[in-house]
Amino acid sequence: MHSVVCIKQVPDSAQIRVHPVTNTIMRQGVPAIINPYDLFALEEALRLKDRFGGTVTVVTMGPPMAEAALRKCLSYGADDAILVSDRAFAGSDTLATSFALTSTIRKIMENMPVDLIFTGKQTIDGDTAQVGPGIAKRLDCQLLTYVSKIVDVDLEQREIQVERRAEGGVQFLKTAMPCLITMLEGTNEMRFGDLDDLFRAARYDLKVWNKEAAGIDDAEMIGLKGSPTVVSKVFAPRPRSQRAEMIETQDNDPKNLAVTLLAKMFTQHPKLEKEIAKRAR
């Protein structure tokens, strides 16, 4: 059983601050982490390896520093890691990214057939959820998004059954492998890697592929040229024109504050008063 897991190194968005004057991201000191949603994908691939044996290959496209994220994956128990890195990828949007990753996966397939491709449901920096579906379409394989559970894998028949979080319910699906799965969050818990894997990860000679190694001859398909979307402007959310009307009383007693608030609010928003009365009845 050979699974390829696509991951991304992202800035920890919980720790990002915007410079109040220049409105730019202050990257300094913001740690780079593995996109948290990708860990559910990696753990699921590792569980399948526990059950059926085989190989887990981790792939990321990114700058040289993304190597750290791959080593982390190796320490959890991934067998092989490939960093796809080339200046020519700079500025890639989701369409160009799915092109580069698909080409990489095809290259991997030349050496060893791939049964399953995993991604997280989305990243926490881009939040688009588009790269996984993009890879599936380009590989012309089946796409199973928001998978909450892998129910059964039949390696002989090359079939897989999953539970999928659909709109308004759970779908039980059966499909053929290879297919691409995006894992839902909270469906498993990442293991602690063992000590052997930790040492192996530190020493491992992970592969760094440039665009040629990833099988990309046509530079028109990647980077800015391969990206139909263009960012025309980046800006900070504008503050509301008025700050909140602060409710104060002389004694600042909680009850008096509450009474003052209600009186003000219901005078200024009479419809709201009716709405609340109607609902609370």
Binding site: S13, V18, I25, I124, D125, V234, F235
Partner: peptide
């Protein structure tokens, strides 16, 4: 973008 820290027009 960036978890809502900034907005971008595309």
């Amino acid at each position: 973008t960036f978890g809502g820290s900034l907005l971008c027009t595309i």
